[in-house]
Design a protein around this nucleic acid. Structure first.
Lengths: 245, 245
DNA sequence: TTGCTCCTCACGTCACGTGAGGTGGC
DNA sequence: TTGCTCCTCACGTCACGTGAGGTGGC
């Protein structure tokens, strides 16, 4: 029981904490050195060290300094209960971080097929990715990605151009007042459905999700989709016709 | 292009943010409403909304508000690079959170076999758990846990009592100055090794880790282990004897 | 005397939450 | 006139990091 003792710097080195941290613990009365020299230097005893090690351990299970204070002072502090809550919180946080990781990985994936992207385009991609998550399950996303790999980057770009072309043709007919029962509109409808089928690969789940997305959102990929919705209902009427006598 | 516009409360409701958050974004010049009423009320235009949606998206990939500001202002801001760094950070954080989760789960496991535990005892268990992690691999921990389940709680408690008894007997012989070559000490050594073997289940890896732990730490399970180290070397000498002619 | 350690303020961090105290528009 | 919304300060959060300016002990 010689009673070893340390100055603040020595204790910091022994424990891997910073001197500032020990100052802070002193300040908030979490760990006050049991003595001071005449000139005011802090002197920590071996029981101070033992307490500090308890503090560090409790920090390492995620307790706040306030919780640690109460835990060390108040025998009625429900430490076991606090640990259970802590576990719940950590599990929840891991789930959230994993979502974020999946999002960032999806972005990294999307980006690696492109060359230089402007910040503006990148933000657009981010917005699309996040919106995508809202309507497609991870399995559906996986399915779509797999399909994209199968058909290849070139075909995807071609499809996008085909969409542009098709939409402007549809808009033209609508502007001209062509009735949806016109055979030209039916032809456009067939191309429309073919492109949708190509994207969904015939998967009805993906088809439904896509439809919900277009019915819910007002802007997709930076485009107002209200005009597109009007095209959709025009095209839908075209399909009804062949069924009639 | 009628140019819709919203007051701050309306915009908050539309985006799910708080009014205070929008005040904050205004304050740090991240999103300033493009107009004010005569009485000073903020008026947000649809392009303000578009910018806000970009901000929200960038927040959802983990960017800080400062990063978002730069990303929206400076075309040279390396957003793609920042995303990669963000992914690294998130992966690292997940690894750390998973360690913490494993620790808390180990604690929950240890605790569920006990009834009411005082905070003091619980802190002791936490310290032991954390120390344990330093010397045993997850596989070894799993091994030890499995073994504990096999032998049962009762046998474990009995072993701990046996340890206490044995150590006090060894201490007695040391105090009496009994030479380690004495047959009584050899008998003690045999009991000692039997208890170690029982804990390690004959696994040499676990045996080594245990030895390293006792050689490195100065306090284990709240006990000074310096006296125990002295016992160990006394006991070790006892073993050397039978080998001699 | 020179280094190194120690001391006490005290501001800064990050993204807002939460009042306080008062005004504006239906 | 009563509610509801809006306004501008301004402190608080959490666990310290980071100086600033000065003193103490070998």
């Amino acid at each position: 029981m010689a009673g070893e003792s340390w100055k603040i710097g020595e204790l910091a080195r022994r424990t891997g904490l910073s001197v500032r941290t020990l100052h802070h613990y002193d300040q908030i009365k979490l760990l006050r050195p049991s003595a001071r020299t005449a000139s005011g230097h802090r002197i920590y005893s071996s029981s101070d060290l033992a307490r500090l090690q308890q503090i560090v351990s409790l920090r390492q299970v995620g307790f706040s300094l306030q919780q640690i204070k109460r835990c060390l002072k108040d025998p009625d502090f429900g430490a076991a209960e606090a640990l259970r809550l802590q576990l719940d919180r950590v599990r929840q946080q891991i789930r959230e971080q994993q979502k974020l990781r999946a999002r960032l990985e999806a972005l990294a994936n999307t980006m690696k097929s492109k060359k230089k992207i402007s910040n503006e385009d990148l933000i657009q991609i981010i917005q699309d990715t996040i919106m995508h998550e809202k309507y497609f399950t991870p399995e559906q996303s996986e399915q779509i990605k797999k399909r994209a790999r199968q058909v290849g980057q070139q075909r995807i770009e071609q499809s996008q151009k085909d969409w542009q072309t098709l939409m402007s043709e549809v808009q033209t007919e609508m502007d001209k007042g062509t009735p949806p029962t016109d055979p030209r509109v039916l032809a456009l409808a067939k191309r429309w459905h073919a492109l949708v089928e190509e994207f969904t690969a015939g998967d009805p789940g993906i088809r439904d999700s896509l439809k919900t997305m277009y019915q819910t959102e007002s802007v997709i990929h930076g485009m107002q989709i209200e005009p597109m919705r009007r095209m959709m209902s025009y095209i839908a009427k075209a399909r009804e016709v062949p069924g009639r006598p």
